[in-house]
Design a protein around this nucleic acid. Structure first.
Lengths: 232, 232
DNA sequence: CGCCTAGTTGATAGCGTTCAAATTGAGTGG
DNA sequence: CCACTCAATTTGAACGCTATCAACTAGGCG
């Protein structure tokens, strides 16, 4: 039995969880575990042999860089999430660690082979891909029509849910995983606007801030209303 | 041999093109062809037994409806494209015909079965899903940071490419597949802004308009610069 | 001809950006 | 423990882009 897999915290939730013990061990022997420090890059846009990876712990960001050199965060990857463009000749985006992160990486050609050899893995990745697509479309819906207030409210609510154990109820206390700059970037706003809106949320009694990153969510319902996404 | 498949214009490019003749015919016997008129809905957000479909001809839009009742176009589906949420318990978005459209539809449970029975189909759909994801992220990049001008320029350039035979070079003459309202909606702008920017593009000598929908692309390079996406 | 929908054009106002400066907080060395 | 430094954040004031409201034009169809 593979040592890494036996104690892997996402062994029951990652894409590879659909494999049998044997299959998983065979796959594991092709990959290697890797640790990225905050800011380290898994692969960059344009890389031809970009790796694929399952995130074991930590958090990643997927971002595009335009010709002026500024970044845009397009998606976050949470533990048990999968990243990597298996079918494109080169990577379209950068993937960077937001916090110290452990990953299980595979060469793209090995992953392509695995998808051929294990149909269940292909189906699991298809399912994940469709979920990613849905999440990205939700972001699109938000950034295209939503005000700065709605965008930030939705982001905070997402973070509160991600920080909670139960998938539906938001956590009452949590730490923001992103800096103001990263939040602004992700939402297509400026640092100043994010800061101001956060201040307004506090004045409205929706949240309390403790330090720079700590959030106490006082009125989640109000936040949900502002996000324009209640009742969904 | 299945009659519909034999003469299907997308038989070599749709997801089912990876199947053998026999497999394809078996799959075809489970589905049925269907024609939608402009504005007709394939399925609505919330439908539990939403169909899956390959688009044969025409064009579809995928859109979300918020609680105020206004729509947001999240994606377009072009011929040979696939639509349907196979793994969600219900559909998250509406899918509506933009023009008269022919589709090849399947009940979701049949599609789920087919994905299990034909691994190659699962891989083909995975590939498509990742492409959709990439397209949606491109839209996200645009709407989050781009000005109205950049958004419209990028949309026009996309249309010009979609209207062209060769995948890379934009068509010189084409018809806009969307109304001003639909373009505005898709880009998170207003009808008025789209109209004004189109007017500016014409004054700048980038395009000429013929009638309400006709476009002659005079200066594609300029358009690409404005879109902020050249050199990619 | 009148009606209706799609599109254009103009004037005004609001929201978020930009530029600038003050403030906080964590880390470091004395 | 304190002073220092640097980055992150907050706050303030003014500008600009796009939305909004409103009027007008063009084309299709009974």
């Amino acid at each position: 039995m593979n040592l890494a897999c036996a104690s892997c915290p996402v062994r029951d939730s990652a894409a590879c969880s659909v494999l049998s013990e044997d299959e998983r061990n065979t796959l594991a022997s092709l990959g290697r575990t890797r640790t990225l420090k905050r800011g380290e890059m898994l692969f960059a846009a344009g890389d031809e042999d970009a790796a694929c990876a399952t995130l074991v712990s930590g958090a990643l960001k997927v971002c595009a860089t335009n010709r002026d050199g500024d970044e845009q965060i397009l998606a976050l990857v949470h533990p048990s999430g999968f990243t990597g463009e298996m079918f494109a000749p080169f990577a379209h985006h950068d993937v960077v660690a937001l916090t110290e992160s452990k990953l299980c990486t595979f060469a793209r050609r090995d992953m392509e082979r695995a998808v051929e050899d294990y149909p269940a893995l292909a189906r699991a990745l298809l399912r994940r891909s469709q979920e990613d697509l849905h999440n990205t479309r939700s972001m699109l819906e938000l950034t295209a029509h939503g005000s700065a207030e709605a965008r930030l409210a939705a982001l905070l609510y997402d973070f509160a849910r991600a920080a909670s154990d139960s998938p539906c109820h938001p956590a009452q206390h949590f730490e923001l995983p992103l800096t103001r700059g990263e939040m602004a970037n992700m939402l297509g706003l400026t640092i100043e606007t994010v800061s101001r809106k956060l201040g307004e949320f506090e004045k409205l009694g929706i949240v309390n801030r403790t330090g720079k990153r700590g959030i106490e969510l006082v009125d989640p319902a109000h936040l949900q209303v502002l996000s324009g996404k209640d009742g969904e």
